[in-house]
């Protein structure tokens, strides 16, 4: 495989509050490659969104990156560690939007209600080019057409609240891609949408990825969306990456008990009607009360004494497939 465009190494992002420290991201490493989609999946509090925010350096206070590296291969060929750049410096601003595009879950709150979508889109283009006003407008219309907005020449002058949820998310994608970034981070891009609209948006992301050879980082809680879209998958639980591997391995040969239980517990349209689901006992602990040792041990069907004390190290299972679980560590130890 070619060199990654973006590579995250041992990222730790903590939130220090009066009540204690929340280790939102606690040692995550992965690579993004051109033309490939990395899916990051996990339930609430697993740190998937904070990972994305860390890459873009937009973690809200009191959160901050405690350690780790985020190496970005820039368009001019140089490589930079994003954790060393000032959050609001010129470099980081040109990387956000310029080299890494971002799509959020809530298109309504990410688009301004006071400017037309065209103005916002043209602003995004203007920040990264120095074309004439007319050329920028033409490019904006072209972008709207590219993301499948009907009658783009008219729609460019409408406001975000005049559009449906699906169209708004298309506008968001157009904005994210306005500066032709090579990396696209999509944080739950379809969670607020209906299924048929979700299918449209996922289709669109896939098509744009092929056309532009984008490296996509797709963050979601929906295993179905991951199965549909991802080439590689990182499964996270309470800030820890518990398993990482090619999508087929994750779904057909999962190794970590959390991945296994999670896959068993998701409802499926293929299931027998009125069949009971396998469950994971208990619930996700409060972030301040994170269990010691392996964070999953209180809910794990295969736990051992060691799981309560020691944090499991990552074990290589197969090609590009690793898991952090003592079950596989024992053989080596």
């Amino acid at each position: 495989m070619a060199d990654p465009i973006l590579s995250v190494r041992d990222l730790h992002t903590y939130f220090v509050a009066d009540e204690g420290v929340v280790r939102a991201v606690d040692g995550t490493s992965f690579d993004l490659h051109s033309g490939r989609t990395l899916g990051i999946v996990g339930e609430s509090g697993c740190g998937k969104s904070v990972t994305a925010k860390s890459i873009l350096r937009i973690v809200e206070r009191p959160g901050r990156i405690v350690s780790g590296q985020i190496m970005l291969r820039r368009q001019n060929g140089s490589t930079v560690d994003l954790t060393t750049l000032p959050t609001d410096g010129r470099d980081m601003r040109s990387i956000r939007g310029g080299e890494i595009g971002l799509v959020f879950q809530e298109p309504m709150s990410s688009l301004s209600a006071f400017h037309t979508i065209g103005n916002q889109l043209m602003e995004a283009i203007r920040l990264h080019t120095n074309l004439s006003k007319r050329a920028i407008r033409e490019q904006a219309i072209e972008l709207l057409a590219m993301v499948g907005i009907p009658r783009p020449a008219q729609r460019i002058d409408s406001y975000s609240f005049e559009l449906s949820g699906g169209l708004r998310q298309r506008v968001m994608i157009a904005m994210a891609l306005a500066a032709e970034p090579r990396v696209l981070i999509a944080d739950e891009p379809t969670t607020a949408l209906d299924v048929t609209t979700q299918a449209q948006i996922l289709d669109l992301i896939r098509r744009l990825q092929q056309e532009r050879d984008l490296a996509v980082m797709l963050i979601t809680h929906d295993m179905g969306v991951i199965a549909e879209m991802a080439d590689d998958v990182v499964v996270m639980y309470l800030g820890k990456e518990v398993e990482k591997g090619p999508v087929d391995d994750i779904f057909h040969a999962p190794r970590h008990p959390y991945t296994k239980s999670l896959l068993r517990s998701i409802p499926s349209v293929l299931a027998e009607p009125r069949s009971r689901l396998a469950t994971i006992t208990g619930s996700i602990p409060h972030p301040f009360a994170r269990p010691g040792g392996c964070p999953f041990h209180p809910r794990c069907p295969d736990r051992h004494a060691v799981c309560e004390i020691t944090v499991p190290a990552e074990v290589v299972i197969g090609e590009n497939h690793v898991t952090a679980c003592h079950l596989y560590n024992k053989v080596a130890a």
Binding site: V195, E228, V269
Partner: peptide
């Protein structure tokens, strides 16, 4: 349109 949790069924 429902995504199926199986990458072999895209």
């Amino acid at each position: 349109a429902v995504p199926v949790p199986d990458p072999r069924r895209r």
